[in-house]
């Protein structure tokens, strides 16, 4: 069974972390993954850096620029991840933008992911209609779960549509924003968490964007299955170095 599906069945709230591959240094990828697993993180999003990350705030933009400057490429990331499944057993998701995947070749990309043991893909700018018409069969052929996003503005009808198309979890963007907001959650956000929980979707939800500490992690997982932390983690390793993963995870739970 796909590791994401297996993980979603566990009776616990899931903590997932995002980091940008190739940052702070080009060869930190495997070390960061190892530390994340040892710290008890449930799942990881490995960010494939892109020159123009439209959905991201300054922290992830800057780490992406630095990673590209360090020489990160799609092939480089795949070669770093070759053999990773000998030691890493938690679900791994590749998160990036669609153009690098398109240039690599969608089928070739998916095939490499399967060889490595990647479980899922998040491509924010690959919309549902295009995915279903062109790429769904390829993702499925290589056993990859495609993760769809929803936001507080997504209509109920659209949520139902995305839920039906979804085979893993739904990525719930916490508020109308790019990544890295730190203002905490408002009442409107809590209402949104409750509203989605009450929809009884077939897919469980994991909340992302704006989760930075224990408090926001708790708030996000009151009604949802888990939460994803990105910018706050990147800020932490920017400040404390690539070997400081455990000291971040400890502050969350």
């Amino acid at each position: 069974m796909n590791r994401i599906k297996q993980k979603l069945q566990e009776d616990k709230k899931l903590l997932s972390l995002y980091f940008t591959a190739g940052y702070p240094a080009i060869d930190d990828t495997v070390s960061i993954l190892t530390q994340l697993q040892e710290s008890g993180v449930d799942m990881v999003e490995i960010g494939l850096p892109f020159s123009d990350p439209l959905a991201d705030g300054p922290t992830i933009q800057e780490s992406s620029t630095a990673a590209l400057h360090n020489g990160m490429t799609t092939e480089k990331l795949f070669s770093q991840l070759d053999g990773i499944r000998e030691t890493i057993h938690i679900p791994l998701i590749v998160m990036g933008y669609f153009n690098p995947m398109l240039q690599y070749g969608v089928e070739k990309f998916c095939k490499r992911c399967q060889e490595i043991g990647i479980d899922g893909i998040i491509m924010p700018d690959l919309p549902l209609a295009e995915y279903e018409a062109e790429y769904k069969a390829i993702f499925e052929k290589y056993g990859l779960i495609n993760v769809f996003l929803i936001t507080p503005q997504t209509s109920d009808a659209r949520i139902q549509q995305l839920d039906a198309a979804s085979d893993g979890f739904i990525y719930m963007v916490s508020s109308a924003s790019t990544t890295g907001g730190t203002s905490g959650f408002s009442n409107t956000t809590s209402d949104y968490f409750e509203r989605i929980a009450a929809m009884n979707l077939k897919s469980q939800q994991i909340v992302g964007f704006g989760i930075s500490n224990e408090e926001t992690f708790k708030a996000a997982t009151t009604h949802q299955k888990g939460a994803i932390i990105g910018s706050a983690f990147i800020k932490h390793i920017t400040k404390n170095g690539a070997n400081s993963v455990a000291s971040f995870v400890e502050t969350i739970r």
Partner: peptide, 22 residues
């Protein structure tokens, strides 16, 4: 340019082999 995606549109654009926009 080669075919790719920029600012939400599939079109011709200047990019590296790796799909980074130049």
């Amino acid at each position: 340019g080669r075919e790719g995606i920029i600012h939400g549109s599939k079109t011709l654009l200047m990019q590296t082999d790796d799909g980074q926009i130049t």
